[in-house]
């Protein structure tokens, strides 16, 4: 009787100790996750979206080539002003370009493995006011979207080579389509 009471007390003591340990480790894990997401939060990016200093760095980190347009209008500045990527769904990249005037002018985003939709975290969520099919393939979509500053931008989305692409710019639609084609080596 006494032995079983002592055994029960030991078991409950052990269970209490393990529960305390779980709470402490859980708290530590929670704090670490919070600390890890602070840099992206300070940048105003959603969790999981990381910054890189160059296209080459993204290619190295994701171990995949980023397809770039061979046609690049003179009105845009090279290199990209911001390079973001996420490892979600095999990886996606977004390159932000400024115009010669220093204002945001173009976004090129693409998935690196698979034709799933480009995560909202890196392409942003803009209001679409007009949609129609585009001359870039069967599932290509041309849209007019409202940018954050209230101006209207053109947006092209299409799938090719098992990747999903998105080009969004405030320049001419002709330039946008020409850039899209040049990504795949097409001249016109």
């Amino acid at each position: 009787m006494t032995a079983s009471i002592a055994m029960g007390s030991t078991v409950s003591e052990g269970a209490r100790a393990l529960w305390t340990l779980a709470l402490v480790l859980g708290g530590a894990a929670f704090a670490l996750v919070g600390l890890d997401s602070m840099p992206t939060w300070l940048h105003g990016q959603p969790r999981g979206v990381r910054r890189a200093t160059s296209v080459e760095e993204v290619e190295r980190r994701l171990q995949s080539r980023v397809l770039l347009p061979s046609y690049f209008p003179d009105s845009l500045r090279w290199p990209p002003s911001l390079v973001r990527f996420t490892r979600e769904d095999g990886g996606s990249v977004a390159l932000d370009f400024q115009g010669k005037d220093g204002a945001p002018a173009l976004l090129l985003a693409q998935t690196l493995a698979g034709a799933a939709a480009i995560p909202e975290g890196i392409q942003g969520r803009l209001a679409v006011i007009q949609r129609q099919s585009a001359p870039l393939g069967e599932d290509a979509v041309l849209a007019r979207v409202v940018a954050e500053d209230g101006t209207l931008w053109n947006q092209l989305e299409w799938t090719r080579s098992d990747r999903r692409f998105l080009l969004r710019g405030r320049g001419s639609l002709e330039d946008l389509i020409r850039m899209a084609r040049s990504i795949h080596g097409e001249r016109r």
């Binding site: 670490l32 890890d36 840099p39 992206t40 940048h43 990381r50």
Partner: peptide, 19 residues
């Protein structure tokens, strides 16, 4: 590996190098 750091780690010190 960078894939571990970006996708599996609950904390990666190098993420603070973004700032």
């Amino acid at each position: 590996a960078e894939s571990f750091r970006d996708a599996r780690a609950i904390f990666a010190g190098r993420h603070w190098d973004d700032l």
